[in-house]
Amino acid sequence: MKLVRVIDTKRCIGCRACVAACMVENFYNPGDPWNFVVEYEQGEFPNVRRVFVPMNCMHCENPPCQKACDYVGAHAIYKNEFGVVLIDYDKCIGCRYCIAVCPYGAPQYVEKLEPLFPNESFTPYERIPEENRHEVHRFRPNIVTKCTFCWHRIEKAIKENKEHLIGVHPEYTPACDLVCPVDARFFGDIENPDSKVAKIVGEKKAAQLKKEFGTRPQVYYILEGGDY
């Protein structure tokens, strides 16, 4: 099984629901978003376009972050059998080499944990205790975090023997892909030819970003202006 995401930027209307959903789902620590939308203009008035590109961890086949992490001896970053690149917070030493080498700006350094409402007490949501959080949500200062493909939801599917429902059933789909109001995001197993992602990657000429880095990202994009 190889999990991938497809983002159709031709559909994306730049609403950032996926960003908000990610923040809520993954206990956003202010300043460290796992998912963000790059927005830029092309051309000059009146021939101008605005493009929205949602970005998150690409879960590369050749993750430079992992190489850097191994290199410094921390060995905190690994890619599991489902194609998900994860960080082991117990091993992470906060050196930030992974951030330095990632061409997509995915990893985020947690300097300190802050309440969502600045200078205020934690909301009941933030007070959900550690034991009720998945390990990917047990943050502490001086670690690096990033998008996990909502590993806590995928893992649940695996544990419950519902692997075939990953990306299909809302319970087993990453939050960002779930909330998109225009259905511009898809998630699933690319090795399963019947999956939506496999079909779209095949039919719609999905591209990968920044191929020149040889990272082989596992997030595919359908781009308005073609391949980058």
Binding site: C15, V19, A20, V24, Y125, C180, D183
Partner: peptide, 11 residues
């Protein structure tokens, strides 16, 4: 078919 960022963060 989806929600907007306001709906998602309404809590």
């Amino acid at each position: 078919i989806g929600n907007c960022p306001k709906g998602v963060s309404g809590l």
